[in-house]
Amino acid sequence: MYLVTVLGNLLIIVATISDSHLHTPMYFFLANLSFADIGFTSTTVPKMLVNIQTQSKVITYTGCIAQIFFLILFCVLDNFLLAVMAYDRYVAICHPLHYMVIMNHRLCGLLVLACWATTALNSLLETLMALRLSFCTDVEIPHFVCELNQLVLLACSDTFPNVIVMYFAAVLLGGGPFAGILYSYSKIVSSVRAISSTQGKYKAFSTCVSHLSVVSLFYSTLLGVYLSSSVTQSSQSTARASVMYSVVTPMLNPFIYSLRNKDIMGALRRLFRWKP
């Protein structure tokens, strides 16, 4: 699964860079999403595979802190990029005649730069807050990965500032992009409903199917983790739910975007010189 994830997302990135037909805002954001997915799954899966092979579940304190930093970074970055892609679809459908003027190279670059800068600063802040925690003895995290909330629960020092920062970041950096996605699609639905022909409606909405599928998969699995952890105290059920959004979702994203996308399939054919 890990190899499929890395190779699938790498193919999306290489196809986007190498094919001039894909030098558009939508595929620029998609390439960044694929890179974030590679980073997200590479933060957790290699260490998990080593643990399975060596039958050892030990991780150093430095390794745990590094895992927390990159896990927060790529998870929140995924969230931001999905919101930016929703805005791109909103402009393409609701303002098609001004699309290339609005979504120019400068704006696309600034949007991606803002995503990276915001997520990096947030990840750095939460990691530095974690460094101030102290632990009574060697601790066992009931998970297959070092998650910040699990580490905070095991600390012996005052964790109130950490909890405040975590909840504030979750509402602002998690809820904000999600609200942006909902707003964009509410406008898209209104515009699509105003189109008179059925064929026109289908053509307009078909450009959003892949993105909607990825958004649904990402948020449903992410919500599943937190709902399962709040409903049941079983660490195994929480870990299983976490596997869905940290392993399965990044693996499925390239298939969702390539199998239903003629541009991506065409770029891959030209890349490998496949004959139609």
Rank of each mutant, 00 (worst) to 15 (best):
L128R: 14
L128C: 15
S220P: 06
F160Y: 01
F135W: 09
L153M: 10
V139A: 00
L133Y: 02
I141L: 05
S246Q: 08
Q199I: 07
L128V: 15
A241G: 05
S206A: 09
V215L: 12
Y185I: 04
S123L: 11
T249M: 10
V163N: 05
L223S: 11
M166V: 06
G174W: 10
A170S: 14
Y202G: 00
V231G: 01
M251G: 03
V214I: 11
K203V: 03
M244S: 09
T119S: 14
A179H: 05
V214Y: 02
S216M: 12
N149H: 09
L223G: 13
E126R: 15
Y185H: 13
G175H: 02
S206V: 04
L173T: 07
T232L: 09
G175C: 02
T249Q: 13
C208S: 11
V248G: 01
F178G: 08
S246A: 05
S216V: 15
S123G: 15
R240P: 04
R240H: 12
T118M: 15
E147T: 11
S184A: 12
V247H: 03
I181R: 03
V152W: 01
S191F: 01
P250I: 07
Y185M: 05
R193T: 07
A170R: 15
K203F: 04
S242H: 10
I188G: 02
I181E: 01
S213Y: 06
V189T: 08
T249C: 11
T238H: 08
V139Q: 04
V209T: 10
V225Q: 06
S235A: 14
L222F: 15
S234D: 11
S197N: 04
S213I: 12
T127D: 02
V189K: 12
F135E: 00
S229I: 14
C156T: 08
L121M: 14
G175L: 03
V243K: 09
C208M: 06
